[in-house]
């Protein structure tokens, strides 16, 4: 199939129906959180994200640390978030990058989920496992460093969010992961838990 044909066909359903800017902002916030969870669990940093972008031929969208920072800083959750609007191509790029990274780190994600299951089964707090304890600490610390303070959110809320994102990462790490993440972003952005 010719690339031009592929492009044309894939553009067609979106030529008239684009996500509105507010929705893209929410998508951006969620993608930033997915990457934050990956950072907290697997210790990935900007270099790993940029390397994934390059391997996916998406380095035109994410060429360097500055472009990555600007993209992530556009999340409405971020302190002093920038005015940059996320476009659909950038959202798509972040979906692919996030899922590639999740796939690369599937072993540790799976181990963390197995520990969470085990401790939940035993009615023990997740912090009992070093891997989960470190993950939750990293997540909470980074979240509080980067995001606007929210009076209504507690440490417990953040831990719950971190654990849900951990389970999500598992499903994003599979062969259908990027489809799941994309559909979740678009379909469930406003539907609540």
């Amino acid at each position: 199939m010719e690339p031009s044909e592929t492009t044309q066909n894939r553009q067609a359903p979106f030529s008239e129906n684009q996500p509105d800017p507010e929705q893209l902002d929410n998508i951006k916030a969620q993608l930033d959180l997915v990457l934050l969870a990956l950072e907290a669990l697997a210790g990935i940093g900007s270099e790993a994200i940029l390397a994934a972008a390059k391997s996916l031929n998406l380095d035109s969208l994410l060429a360097d640390r500055v472009s990555l920072w600007r993209l992530r800083q556009s999340s409405p959750l971020r302190k002093g978030h920038g005015r940059k609007k996320l476009d659909v191509e950038e959202a798509r790029a972040l979906v692919l990058i996030s899922c590639q990274l999740a796939q690369q780190h599937q072993t540790v994600i799976r181990r963390a989920v197995a520990l969470l299951e085990e401790l939940t089964e035993q009615n023990k707090p997740p912090h009992r496992a070093a891997l989960l304890g470190d993950y939750l600490d990293n997540f909470s610390n980074t979240y509080q460093d980067r995001m606007e303070a929210d009076e209504n959110s507690s440490t417990e809320d953040l831990s719950h969010l971190a654990l849900r994102l951990l389970i999500d990462l598992l499903f994003y790490s599979g062969p259908g992961g990027s489809r799941r993440l994309w559909v979740a972003l678009l379909e469930r952005a406003g539907t609540g838990g």
Partner: peptide, 10 residues
């Protein structure tokens, strides 16, 4: 899968 609205403050 976690919806966006789960994020505190969003």
């Amino acid at each position: 899968l976690t919806p966006v609205t789960t994020a505190p403050g969003l």
